[in-house]
Design a binder for these strands. Sequence first.
DNA 1: CTCCTTGGTGCAAACGATTGCAACCGATCG
DNA 2: CGATCGGTTGCAATCGTTTGCACCAAGGAG
Lengths: 335, 335
Amino acid sequence: MAERVRLIDVAREAGTSVSTVSRALNGSDLISPEVVAHVRAVAGQLGYRADKRAQEFKLGRPLTVGVTVPDLTNPFFSEVLKGLNAAARAGGYRLLIGESSEDPAEELRLVDELVDYSGALVLCSSRLTRAGLEKALAQPVPVVCINRTVKNAGVVAIDYRAASRLLLEHLTGLGHRRVLYVGGPATSWSDGERRRTLRRTARALDVTLDEIDGGWSGNHGYDAGPTVLHSRATAVITFNDLVGIGLLSWMYDNGVEVPSELSVASYDDIPIAAYSRPPLTSLRNERAKLGELAWEQLTKRLGGADWPAPDLLTPELVVRASTGPARRRARIRAS
Amino acid sequence: MAERVRLIDVAREAGTSVSTVSRALNGSDLISPEVVAHVRAVAGQLGYRADKRAQEFKLGRPLTVGVTVPDLTNPFFSEVLKGLNAAARAGGYRLLIGESSEDPAEELRLVDELVDYSGALVLCSSRLTRAGLEKALAQPVPVVCINRTVKNAGVVAIDYRAASRLLLEHLTGLGHRRVLYVGGPATSWSDGERRRTLRRTARALDVTLDEIDGGWSGNHGYDAGPTVLHSRATAVITFNDLVGIGLLSWMYDNGVEVPSELSVASYDDIPIAAYSRPPLTSLRNERAKLGELAWEQLTKRLGGADWPAPDLLTPELVVRASTGPARRRARIRAS
DNA sequence: CTCCTTGGTGCAAACGATTGCAACCGATCG
DNA sequence: CGATCGGTTGCAATCGTTTGCACCAAGGAG
């Protein structure tokens, strides 16, 4: 905890004016080299550090991008943040992070607050209502949405149409004709997309698709166990890997063999999916890349261009041991 | 993307001076109620929002706390961030996040940058060298270290002495006399602490403790599999749950029964630990609380007080199926 | 009817930096 | 030898807000 050294202190010590110091430090070309050297030396000696806040204040737009995520502890969002953070930092920006706790009202409050400090906003898997989103987009800063499509904003998303098709084709290839989807949070746009694309693809592939509500974490999957068991489906698709792993856990605890009695597959392929028992078949997507692309859209926009077309990332199916051939006879079993 | 409305615009529209508007909006008591009402109305109508940056700039210290974490995607850090974020937000502060990617040099750069924007710093599981830490503490803002003890700074940490004792006593209670520790990143202070306290407690309990180097993620644990198998230990303690789960996975893939052939226990108890196969015995710690306590120390310090005594959190052992009685005969097996 | 209080308001200085413009210097040129 | 010019430097305004202080009208007291 030392004292702050200001420009004026350096000026006094160097025997010049603040303007000269400022110019010397910022590499202006209309300053004599000797003075530059001298000022630099003095500044270094005094340990001068520009007050970035004053600097940015004077210069205009804040070099900060505000980000909202529903849940900091969800590996999906962590990795998006990781990618976005790296890209933004490389571009000279910093990340101001807000967590909405999966609550649309809280997210709206966050947006309202972040916008005061940020030159741009990234809404990751926004849980905002339609009206809330409109309000957010009316803010005087550019906004990029990750995993949510919307007009008049940047959009970076996973191609769920392709994703759902990959999943269902894999399952039908194994002989499954009846599939159950264990859904995510009701406020999640991507859950909606997964349902929509699954339904559509199921129809095309002549698969019977049932749906139940779930959530976004391990215990949501675990709790869905009994319902899943009593369904007539031979394969289950879960909203994400956490739900999938929770479900696998229930199956194990209750003696249901996976995949011989039931196949389980999921979206996202977070790192831990490879280590579940059995390892989870899942859709790998480049989450960090989502963050990077969001930043790219932002820089283009900040550069004055219009919003580019949405970036769609196509996932890749990673087949592991949790999916296998459909069993022949109907399961008859007490819970 | 609308235009910014400034204080002066509101003043002009309301037919008063900027000072009056400022005071009316900030609830000063030396303004007549009618004027306050009028100004408020005009401001609302114009959609005025104070420029927080100008405000904070004028007011002094930035209401932002900079945080560094080694890895955003590690659940341990995510949860610390969650707690810290919630506490700081409640206190009117925002979080500026930096990720060092487990790299001490990068962390030093981050500190250097964050300090320009922050009124306080929180170093979470700092990988900084001793010298680097000194440098960080010389910054003109208060610094709290999470999971690292140091003088002249706030300290919030997990009580690894108690932690290691809980683990080893649990294992000796099951008859284990030879334990292997699979370590974490070399730059990690907490790995050092875990080793130190394990050694000390092992001596006290007359347990033979071996150590190997590992890392912080699932594949580090998986890769350690062969070495673990060939060791003479009947129980393994891993640096964290990710490593533990990776190790369990290797054991499963190679037909080693856990816990009948080998017991595995770990530190941290991240949520997914309950869903591994078998579920992992681990030390539950309140990570979010670490963040909250860090914030508490910070507020005290910002309030002018000296640094409080370090906060030590004692973890709780959660016994699950990955630990069991030590096998009687020596394991004889080819890799 | 003064004079003084007091409650309400505006002026202007500040926060720490950047930058347009004017001023200054020595040197060159007419 | 004075005007001009290119190269440096300093003055002062500016970003949007807060706040100490001066000021002014109205009302109460003497």
